[in-house]
């Protein structure tokens, strides 16, 4: 096999990219099954659809000890049609659970803000359960510079 200079670099670059990807802890976090179970328990076995929920997180969090997170769900928030609860999950933390907000028709809007701990760069998930039982979710990656678990 004869490689031209160009092919050689293309090959080398590809291999480097492959190694870089291989080095990533894809699914290495023990939380993957935990996250699936938490979502399934919360959703009553339903698969959450996308849409309606918007999760607002910073793209980069310099300090994982306190990362502002807010969630907003589209809903008329009337007595028969409101957002019952929203669960927040941090997929790369030692425990995925973060907080569950319970709204009521008196909430006016289904929106809540808090500050959370993130151990490392990871996906944050918000799952919203409506009063009629339908479930929606949103996911955002947050890059963490300094982890927030005493590390």
């Amino acid at each position: 096999m004869k490689l031209t200079k160009r092919e050689f670099f293309a090959f080398g670059g590809g291999a480097a990219a492959f190694v870089a990807l291989g080095g990533m802890p894809v699914g290495a976090s023990a939380a993957t099954d935990e996250v699936k179970k938490l979502i399934s328990d919360f959703a009553g076995g339903k698969m959450p659809a996308s849409g309606k929920v918007s999760l607002n997180t910073p793209e980069i969090a310099e300090n994982g000890n306190t990362v502002p997170v807010s969630v907003e769900v589209e809903s008329p928030m009337t007595k028969d049609n409101y957002v019952a609860s929203v669960m927040l999950l941090a997929t790369g933390n030692p425990f995925a659970g973060v907080a569950t907000f319970h709204f009521s028709h008196m909430s006016g809007e289904a929106t809540a803000t808090t500050r959370i701990r993130l151990a490392k760069t990871q996906d944050v998930i918000a799952v919203a359960k409506m009063s009629d039982g339908t479930v929606f979710m949103d996911k955002k990656q947050v890059k963490v510079t300094i982890g927030g678990c005493g590390g």
């Binding site: 000890n65 306190t66 990362v67 807010s70 928030m77 941090a90 933390n93 425990f95 659970g97 973060v98 907080a99 569950t100 907000f101 319970h102 709204f103 009521s104 008196m106 909430s107 006016g108 809007e109 929106t111 809540a112 803000t113 808090t114 500050r115 959370i116 701990r117 993130l118 927030g148």
Partner: peptide, 26 residues
């Protein structure tokens, strides 16, 4: 509000120290 629960949160250890919560009520 006037004795009726309008908002609640179940909190896990992943919520930061000095937990801050912001929400709305009609």
């Amino acid at each position: 509000f006037n004795g009726t629960q309008v908002f609640a949160v179940d909190i896990e250890p992943a919520v930061s120290a000095n937990p801050f919560l912001q929400f709305t009520v009609k």
